[in-house]
Amino acid sequence: MSKIEHASGNSNLQVEHFTFLPSIADNIREASLVISHAGSGSIFETLRLGKPLIVVVNEDLMDNHQSELAEELAERNHLLCAHPQTLRETVEAMDLNALQPYVPGEAKPVVALINQFLGFPVD
């Protein structure tokens, strides 16, 4: 893990970044802001931990489902969505107080419906 510190005016910015960790849950818990790629695992892990999130969409992916997920959650005010070229402007303009907490849905009704459709016993 690498750490970058930057002092500007009266504020200090401390950035930690890494290329790979087996689990980032502890890092997310300690963070005041998470900037992440648009992978669904990273998005939902951060939102479940209640941390403000800026998702940076990889525009080079074909059939970019990551972009669709990030943009939908941004429309619902659960996170902020940026592109590599707009990240700086997104950080400068962000209002973290406008973000709404993410409340995970209940999966049991969906599972029961799928089981019923497939002819499996329904609990």
Rank of each mutant, 00 (worst) to 15 (best):
S2C: 09
K3N: 10
I4R: 11
E5I: 15
H6F: 15
A7V: 10
S8D: 11
S11G: 15
N12S: 01
N12K: 10
L13F: 10
L13G: 03
Q14P: 12
V15G: 15
E16K: 04
E16Q: 12
F18Q: 04
F18S: 03
F20E: 01
F20L: 04
P22S: 07
S23N: 10
I24S: 05
D26M: 05
N27L: 04
I28R: 08
R29V: 03
E30K: 15
A31R: 02
A31W: 09
L33P: 01
V34G: 02
I35G: 02
H37D: 15
H37I: 06
A38L: 01
A38I: 00
G39P: 00
G39H: 04
S40C: 06
I43Y: 05
E45D: 09
E45I: 14
E45Y: 09
L49P: 09
G50W: 06
G50Q: 05
K51W: 07
K51G: 07
L53W: 03
V55A: 02
V57D: 02
N58A: 06
E59V: 02
E59A: 08
D60K: 11
D60N: 10
M62E: 09
M62F: 03
D63A: 15
H65C: 04
H65N: 04
Q66S: 08
Q66L: 14
Q66T: 00
E68V: 05
E68W: 12
L69C: 02
L69P: 06
E72D: 12
L73D: 00
A74Q: 01
A74R: 01
A74L: 01
A74Y: 11
L79M: 06
L80A: 05
L80D: 07
A82Q: 02
A82C: 02
P84H: 07
Q85M: 11
L87K: 11
L87P: 03
R88M: 08
E89L: 10
T90L: 06
T90H: 02
V91M: 08
A93I: 15
A93H: 15
L96T: 10
L96G: 08
N97S: 13
A98Y: 13
Q100N: 06
Q100G: 03
P101R: 08
P101H: 11
Y102S: 03
Y102L: 07
Y102G: 04
Y102E: 04
V103A: 01
P104F: 12
P104R: 11
E106M: 05
E106L: 08
A107I: 15
A107N: 11
V111K: 11
V111M: 04
A112H: 15
A112N: 10
L113G: 12
L113W: 15
L113R: 14
I114T: 00
I114F: 01
N115L: 08
N115V: 08
N115R: 13
Q116F: 14
Q116R: 14
F117Y: 14
L118T: 01
P121T: 09
D123W: 13
D123P: 04
